[in-house]
Design a protein around this nucleic acid. Structure first.
Length: 567
RNA sequence: GCGCCCGUAGCUCAACUGGAUAGAGCAUCGCCCUUCUAAGGCGAGGGUUACAGGUUCGAUUCCUGUCGGGCGUACCA
């Protein structure tokens, strides 16, 4: 058998050979090509793998499902991996594979090491992932944290699937919200507070605004990733305040992201689209293509021609563009940079932009595919503490910051909780659970499995024994326990999970898998001693556990979570 | 009103994109540390998958409707 070929693929191939034989026997139409699917069995009584092939092709064969399944089984070629195939239930074919076949994945894991689970299905293709993209108007909140975790993990998955992935953060550093920020800071510079009559309407009230104003009035210099600005100490200098505030909050967010260990390849400034004339260019194209009209002193885009329920204002009566116009220009820029695939990770509260941006891109008439770009929307995060929702933080005022969370429950736990749930589900982040009962925290459960495996080696050397990998691999068939086989089968699933999680943009699938794998390991660990007297069995078992360790490391790495040697 | 997302054990969430008896973790109740880390394991209880129809060999998954929750429905982003 070939250890490089995944088990399911091998079984699929056997089934296909059987179907081909049945076609030549005239029992199946020549042009029949039913989709062969092989799945893991949930129940050991159902073997290791199962296929529904007989049920989906029963009509083509004009036979009853169970009879037809028997025909397929009868025509399966002999294979060293297969010990038994039997019919079950309405017409499933259950496959029992040999111990040796299940254990062969261990070889593969040691050959591929940190690359085990990776594939090159995205090879030669450019993809861009945009995430977080918070306005520089305040510290990052929990929602941004979820976006950061999900977007970062999606990027890691794409890289593991061979894609040429660019991670990007889009800063809305122009527009009305930034003006509002500048005015809020200016008010603080002048010693005003929300209680004063001249406080700006909807002004930002967080404590950080006051800190910012103080820093500006002291003439401090702020340096962020790509800009530096010194406070002019002049409370009437709105432009100066604006620049200073943006630089200050960008630095603030950079620190938040650094604390969360989330990186970007490109920080894209909205203001650069104006400076380069890209916004004006896009607008002119839209006008030229006849998708705009003037009404009430504003310029409108006929988004209704692209599925929107009403047309949208592009240029306001005050001459400024609405937010989605630079967004269209930005996406045109992405397209021109050659990203055939773009994934925008954002909060579902911004989902209305999707229709507008796509409409704008279609109206440009540049042969951009209709469904481009892709979106992953995450639902809101509710933070609970003491059985009550937390809405306030000291620094930000009206929301819980990402930094609050990291400081309280740690980096790994924060990342795990924010990435371990399907983005489309609303998420409750229970600080008490993650904090006061940290030993019940699922991330520790996974990390503990890793630490336990490491401790086996420590124990081994303390007994002046050593682990012989090549002997372990050579004597791998000493592993005859049922749990050893199912553990190996679980390891063999990892590559397909990595692939599926990537195509579905669903990092939580990795988290779920790791939790299952850790559970299987803990159970095995409690039932079977690894360090036994028999050197062959001992080497084989350590080899198995080290393979588990490798997969845990690879999986945790996809989530950006550490794999501690001891806890 | 309209659009998008969601509704699964007391709580937080899974379910390999349509498969077999719907699974984990908390919480509750029993067991297991002279044995490689008990941050662990074993076992028990807990469900009409919101509700009603439909599609088919088969539905938590797809379609329709109802109810409930979140978000949006700006010349804010």
């Amino acid at each position: 058998m070939n250890a490089k070929v995944p088990m399911k693929q091998e079984l699929s191939s056997l089934i296909e050979q059987s179907l081909a034989a049945l076609i030549s026997q005239g029992k199946l139409p020549e042009d029949a090509s039913p989709k062969v699917m092989v799945e893991d069995s949930k129940d050991k009584a159902h073997g290791d793998y199962a296929s529904n092939i007989a049920m989906v092709s029963t009509k083509l064969a004009k036979q009853k499902p169970r009879d037809w399944a028997q025909e397929i089984i009868n025509n399966l070629p002999d294979s060293p991996i297969l010990s038994k195939a039997e019919i079950a239930g309405p017409g499933f074919i259950n496959f029992f594979v040999t111990e040796a076949a299940s254990l062969s994945v261990i070889n593969t894991i040691f050959e591929q090491g940190s690359k085990f689970g990776h594939n090159d299905s995205g090879k030669g293709q450019k993809v861009q992932v945009e995430y977080v993209s918070a306005n520089p108007t305040g510290p990052l909140h929990v929602g941004h944290g979820r976006g950061a975790a999900v977007g970062d993990c999606i990027s890691r998955l794409l890289l593991a699937n061979g894609w040429d992935c660019t991670r990007e953060f889009y800063y809305n550093d122009a527009g009305a919200q930034i003006n509002n920020l500048a005015l809020s800071v200016q008010a603080r510079c002048k010693g005003l507070g929300p209680e004063d009559a001249s406080w700006p309407e909807n002004g930002y009230q967080g404590h950080y605004i006051t800190e910012l104003a103080e820093s500006f009035m002291k003439g401090e210099t702020v340096e962020s990733a790509d800009q530096s600005f010194t406070g002019t100490k002049d409370a009437d200098d709105v432009d100066g305040i604006r620049h200073f505030a943006v630089a200050y909050l960008r630095r603030e967010q950079d620190l938040d992201l650094k604390a969360f260990e989330v990186d970007f390849d490109v920080y894209f400034l909205e203001s650069s689209l104006y400076e380069q004339g890209n916004v004006e260019e896009a607008v002119q194209t839209l006008i030229k293509n006849g998708f705009t009209y003037e009404d009430g002193g504003a310029l409108w885009l006929k988004t209704t021609e692209f599925g929107d329920d009403k047309d949208r204002v592009m240029r306001k009566t005050d001459g400024g563009y609405t937010y989605f116009v630079p967004d269209v220009a930005y996406h045109l820029n992405k397209w021109k940079r050659g990203f055939g695939r773009v994934i925008n990770e954002q909060g579902s509260d911004h989902h209305s932009t999707i229709t507008r941006v796509r409409a704008g891109l279609q109206a440009l008439k540049m042969d951009i595919p209709e469904g481009w770009p892709d979106y992953v929307l995450h639902q809101m995060v509710m933070v609970m503490k003491g059985g009550e929702e937390v809405k306030i933080s000291k620094r930000a005022g009206s929301y819980v910051t990402l930094r609050d969370l990291i400081d309280q429950v740690g980096l790994d736990a924060t990342r795990y909780f924010l990435a371990a749930r399907a983005p489309s589900s609303q998420l409750t982040f229970d600080i008490d659970l993650a904090l006061s009962q940290s030993n019940d925290n699922p991330v520790y459960y996974i990390q503990y499995a890793h630490a336990r495996i490491c401790s086996i080696l420590r124990k081994l050397s303390s007994e002046t024994l050593h682990w012989d990998l090549s002997n372990g691999l050579a004597k791998i068939d000493a592993l005859v326990e049922e749990q050893e086989k199912s553990l190996a089968n679980k390891l063999a699933r990892f590559p397909e999970i990595v692939k599926a999680a990537c195509t579905a943009n669903a990092p939580h699938m990795i988290a779920n898998y790791l939790h299952e794998l850790a559970g299987d390991f803990h159970s095995y660990y409690n039932n079977h001693k690894t360090i036994v007297d028999d050197a062959d069995l001992r080497d084989a078992r350590i080899t198995l556990t080290q393979a588990v360790r490798q997969v845990l490391v690879n999986g945790l790495d996809l989530l950006g979570i550490s794999a501690p040697q001891e806890m």
